[in-house]
Design a binder for these strands. Structure first.
Lengths: 245, 245
DNA sequence: CGGAAACTTGAAACCTTTCAAGAGTCGTGG
DNA sequence: CCACGACTCTTGAAAGGTTTCAAGTTTCCG
């Protein structure tokens, strides 16, 4: 069953994709996944700084990140950029173009990125053949909607809470994908993190430093270790500071 | 063709709904709209403070507001509420429950509200019969996603910009629905506006007062008139203050 | 008409930003 | 392999916008 070699090379399909259970196919049957596989464009590679798509660009399809990370950036009338999202391996992007058929934001690789593509021009075709697909996509979009709402709420909280929540959010999402939850690399710069959280980059640096001083985390440039998850959790929920151990 | 009377009374359907072009059916054919009409539950009425649905409640369907306004509120672990949205007549809500089949926020009537319901249990049925429907719903959800993103960006701007943007956003949305764009009633309290924009209620009051002093708007309790739209627009985009006329 | 809720306004307190300078990191090339 | 330059990050001190606290006024509704 694992002989899916086409034109002599190993073909990566949704079926043997390590992210299968986390990506679009979750919720589909084996047969439906097989169907999907044939239409998905396999892994492409981009380098740091490359665009997956640009704001205003035509909708090409839904992307799934296989490896690496990317950021979502919107721009206002003055050309100021706002980081609105961070995409980790196994996550989907491109939904912002569904309404207007044009992207509302740009997606930029933060390091070498490999990704799959579910081409827009085959979406209709595929939705006919796999009725459940659109519903699945909808589910993903809806989940993203909730994510954005959470983001809105987060921006109303204090700087400490925002940074703590940011760290734990990444931690949790990495864990779901099978990566280490307690040690990871921040692919965003302090500037980008600040922009994302609505804080000055100096504030991010300061708070990260403070958390490190308090022994909650370890920070070395972009490398982060989480030592006291519960303490961070307590900060997130705005609880009183835990007594210094 | 206008004899759609059932059981002796005039039946309100999507077909003769004044909001037709703004609601779900936009993008569907006459025949498809007819189909949709049969499954939609007609106008229901709620009073100020009543819930359209509650956070955690099971997904009952997509709602369309016919008259009145409502607010969306999420709650954190401590029970603090966060206003995440304001719904005007002709707008849809309920998408937040699509992912988990449970609502991520509560929807509360701000005054007497009449609304239609596209029941969840008939959604599947209808999506089969009207293939384009799910896609249309998706389009709506995607648009809401962009709205949330805009909200995130907005929360990173100054208090003046937030309030000005808030006023113009309502103005624009009312205009689309055929209401007066320059004179309307703020159904949210200062508290709710502040919560929505991430500001203290006093700050909202002060800025509204300032705008009024500067002759940009007229404010009388919840009643608002916009006098200088361009000036507000200039504030939104963070441009320099216009010279006092 | 009376009471509760909503709104306004002032002044002090506070958190975050801004400005500024220096240290660290990374990639390239001598 | 180390030096150089660009970029990123850290840290301090002052400035500034919002919030908080407080008191008074207005609006709404029974």
């Amino acid at each position: 069953m694992s002989d899916r070699t086409v034109r002599g090379r190993l073909e990566v399909t949704c079926r043997n994709c390590s992210l299968m259970r986390l990506c679009i196919p979750s919720g589909l049957t084996q047969q439906e996944i097989e169907h999907l596989s044939r239409l998905v464009i396999g892994k492409k590679t981009l380098q740091r700084g490359d665009y997956l798509y640009r704001k205003g660009g035509k909708f090409r399809g839904i992307f799934a990140i296989k490896a690496g990370t990317a950021k979502l950036v919107t721009y206002d009338l003055h050309g100021n950029g706002y980081v609105t999202g961070l995409l980790l391996p196994g996550e989907l992007l491109g939904f912002d173009a569904f309404a207007a058929d044009r992207h509302e934001c740009s997606a930029i690789a933060l390091e070498t990125v490999r990704y799959c593509e579910l081409p827009a021009d085959r979406l209709d075709e595929l939705c006919r053949e796999v009725p459940k697909l659109l519903r699945e996509l909808f589910r993903h979009a809806s989940a993203k909607l909730y994510g954005e709402t959470s983001q809105v709420v987060l921006t109303k909280r204090t700087a400490d809470e925002r940074v703590a929540t940011f760290l734990l959010d990444i931690s949790r999402r990495l864990q779901v994908r099978g990566f280490s939850a307690l040690e990871f690399r921040l692919s965003l710069t302090r500037q980008d993190i600040g922009n994302y959280l609505g804080l000055a980059l100096e504030t991010v640096s300061r708070i990260l430093g403070k958390f490190a001083d308090e022994g909650l985390i370890g920070v070395h440039s972009k490398h982060v270790r989480i030592f006291k998850q519960e303490a961070l959790q307590a900060i997130c929920t705005g609880s009183a500071e835990l007594p210094s151990a």
